[in-house]
């Protein structure tokens, strides 16, 4: 009884969405995030609706399935601006007013009219471990085996201070909310410092989502300025707005000072300079585009996590695509990530 009462109250809360952004889908999702009836979540654990926006690669389907299963019950999937890919049986296509569709699905989930979606992946651990090993935990000795289905990290050299502790190698992406959508990175971390990086898949091209104001917003979000970022996006979406307020928000927040100087420098332009340039472009001050090219994977090693995230979010989309040539010889590794 009490729970159903809570559920009724909860239906009036904004719908919690985890967006999966595909090709050309970013601007639409960013505009949707301005709608008061929805709230975009940084992780599937906080979300109820998985919203796929724009076409995604076949290779990303396993990742999408895993994300789908990571949502807590009750959950639902909506495909928007693309048709559901085969292999997603309970998917529903949305056309027209997506915010209303999300709201409706959300309410149906909460009231129990709509059944929560089942898992897409088999209910199996990553490796069989039950009953194996010295204590039935799947491991051997101190560090060996696969306790509870996964091996343990092993020591490796460190770039910075020479303490060879454990290196954590994992694929981040392709739909990690703090990275550009579609970007699949294999990072080796020691603590929170990136030791090596590989681009396994490039981010999706975004044809329309690249006004300077949106770029500024994307860089403000990892700095903890969600509110200001939303205001920048709103101005970009409406094509009009008071730039003075934005200027004040940008300056008073100290965002420029929070970005370390010299970070992500290509051809003499670091992130601070990029941010300044975008802001000038947004104000209509002519500012030459940066021509410098390089590779994202050369920028990341040696950076701390927060800096690496800033770097990954600090490029125009067309430029980012040029910076992310996938390492062809690593095709075999891609299987490991999904």
């Amino acid at each position: 009884m009490a729970v159903s009462g809570l559920a009724r109250l909860a239906t009036s809360a904004p719908a919690a969405i985890y967006p999966v952004v595909g090709k050309d889908g970013l601007a639409a999702v960013e505009d949707l995030s301005l709608h008061p009836a929805v709230s975009l979540q940084p992780t599937p654990r906080h979300a109820s609706v998985l919203l796929v926006s724009g076409e995604i690669r076949r290779g990303d389907h396993p990742a999408l399935r895993r994300l789908h299963d990571q949502l807590p019950h009750p959950r639902a999937t909506l495909w928007w601006r693309t048709t559901p890919a085969p292999g997603f049986p309970q998917a529903e296509n949305v056309e027209g007013d997506v915010a209303r569709a999300v709201e409706l699905v959300w309410r149906q989930l909460m009231t129990g009219e709509r059944r929560s979606e089942d898992n897409l992946l088999p209910d199996e651990p990553p490796a069989a471990w039950r009953g194996k090993g010295d204590h039935g935990q799947g491991g051997e000795g101190m560090m060996g085996g696969k306790p509870y289905g996964r091996p343990m990290a092993m020591t490796d050299e460190d770039q910075r201070d020479g303490l060879a502790l454990d290196a954590y190698t994992a694929c981040f992406g392709p739909f990690l909310s703090v990275l550009p959508p579609g970007l699949l990175l294999e990072l080796t971390l020691q603590g929170d410092v990136v030791q090596s990086a590989k681009v396994l898949r490039a981010p999706f091209a975004q044809a329309v989502a690249d006004e300077p104001l949106r770029r500024v917003a994307r860089l403000l979000r990892p700095l903890g300025l969600a509110g200001a970022a939303e205001r920048f996006q709103r101005t970009a979406a409406a094509q009009t707005g008071d730039l003075k307020i934005l200027d004040r928000a940008l300056r008073w927040s100290g965002a420029l000072h929070a970005i370390p100087p010299g970070l992500g420098e290509i051809a003499g332009e670091d992130i601070r300079a990029s941010l300044r340039r975008w802001w000038e472009q947004a104000q209509g001050i002519a500012s030459p585009a940066s021509l410098g090219d390089g590779r994202l994977v050369d920028l990341l090693p040696g950076l701390e996590w927060s800096e690496a995230i800033l770097v990954a979010n600090s490029f125009e989309y067309d430029r980012l695509l040029r910076l992310c040539p996938p390492d062809r010889e690593d095709d075999g590794d891609q299987e490991d990530c999904s």
């Binding site: 809570l6 109250l9 909860a10 809360a13 009750p74 651990p125 990553p126 509870y148 289905g149």
Partner: peptide, 20 residues
């Protein structure tokens, strides 16, 4: 009233435990 709704929203949903 939003904090109540948001809070309730979390309370009526599933709790996920990660691996081990």
């Amino acid at each position: 009233a939003e904090p109540w709704r948001q809070g309730d929203l979390h309370l009526v949903r599933q709790r996920i435990w990660t691996e081990r």
